[in-house]
Amino acid sequence: MKKHEFLPDLPPPANTRGMMGWMLKNLFNSPLNTILTFVIAFFACKGIISVFDWAILDANWIGTTRDACTKSGACWVFISVRFEQFMFGFYPEAELWRPKLFFATLAILTALLAYHKTPKRTWIFLFTVTIYPFLMAELLEGTLFGLPVVEPHKWGGLLITLIIALVGIVVSLPIGILLALGRRSDMPVIRSLSTVYIEVWRGVPLITVLFMASVMLPLFLSHGAEANKLVRALIGVVMFSAAYMAEVIRGGLQAIPKGQYEAADALGLNYTKKIVLIILPQALKITIPSIVNTFLGLFKDTSLVLIIGMFDVLGIGQAANTDPSWLGFATESYVFVALVFWIFCFGISRYSIWLENKLNTGHKR
């Protein structure tokens, strides 16, 4: 072999790369860390096995009464018997096809909008946020199609949770954008009004807002006019959420470099085009994590409508826990409700991460 020739590089040792390398570096890099790793792993495995036994192996799955719950584990029979109430509240059984149709169409539209290659996606979005809500509201209440009228006070469960969350999210975002722009406006009146609105609503708890919407809002309506409790709750949630959304958007607007504004002015763009075409797309992209975080908080805060007599999915669970025929199964109820909230929140968070990566225009090293 000639002196100037070199042997090929050897691959790194197996214990310095992959999962094994990471574990040796972070979990077993010293005697103390090794002991702590084994102790924590022991208690974690013990807890996981106990939960698995209670929720799966020793659980009761089949039956219609509490007499079917003979094992020592969870009684999921309670959830199966009350499942329709968890989903639809006290909606009449003969008309359950209406909320089921709402759930199905909502899932289809959400899937079409989430898939970025869907044809005519813009038109589907416009339909979803304009015509679709009013169409479904009339279908659920039955005032337009000649169907039996179902008063909103009979709605409940996941149906109410989704309605309040979706309306709050869809309506509060554009209002929050306008408030954020108003707070940064050069016009003193607009800036002052936007600031007062944001500070007032951010300084009031949501529980108080719901009480005000339920009790005080009817006082401002004309004589003989009446808004049902659901509409009042929606107004309160939207006004409250819009104030928080405005501050999130304002943070994104302030993060945009001044040169972007100057470049838009140099191109001769008016204020509307500058904001819509240049500033807002960048600001919204920056604030995706904060916007999604606000949406998740709003979704979970829908459970507070219980205090004004509306039974969302958590309220239905609490009401079911007081049934004398099913006393003692509150744990199963809360676990099921927590799982419902987690599924929706996890799905939203994962989609937001995908959206961040898709819209990322930075240069990663």
Rank of each mutant, 00 (worst) to 15 (best):
V189F: 15
R202A: 02
Q85E: 15
L57N: 05
L140S: 08
G182S: 02
E95S: 08
L217E: 03
Y197G: 00
N26G: 02
I40P: 00
A94G: 02
S194K: 12
R232W: 11
S303W: 07
F6C: 02
V215D: 05
V170Y: 12
T195Q: 07
K300N: 04
L158Q: 04
V149D: 06
L10S: 08
P281K: 01
V196G: 05
M212T: 04
Y197S: 04
G21Y: 15
V51P: 00
L139I: 14
R184N: 02
L280V: 11
G142R: 12
R183Q: 02
E95W: 10
N270C: 06
I316H: 05
G224F: 15
R98G: 03
V51C: 06
R66A: 03
G224C: 10
D9W: 12
I62R: 02
A137L: 15
L221W: 10
I278V: 10
D67Y: 14
I40V: 14
L57M: 10
I288Q: 03
T294Q: 11
L304W: 06
S325T: 07
P99F: 14
H116E: 09
L101T: 10
W97E: 03
I164E: 04
E226N: 08
P8S: 10
I286S: 01
E138R: 05
L234P: 01
G252I: 15
P152A: 06
R232Q: 13
I62T: 03
S50C: 10
K71T: 13
D9C: 10
L147V: 09
R66E: 08
T65L: 14
K154R: 13
I286C: 09
H363M: 07
A74N: 06
F145L: 08
C75S: 01
L269P: 00
V215P: 00
H223C: 02
S303L: 09
L139A: 07
Y115M: 14
S303N: 00
D58N: 10
I353F: 13
G21A: 13
W61C: 09
P324I: 13
F103N: 00
A104Q: 07
T143F: 14
M239G: 00
E199S: 00
F341Y: 15
Y115W: 15
L7G: 00
G157R: 13
V340H: 09
I40K: 04
E151Q: 11
M245Q: 08
A74S: 14
I160G: 00
F127W: 11
R202T: 03
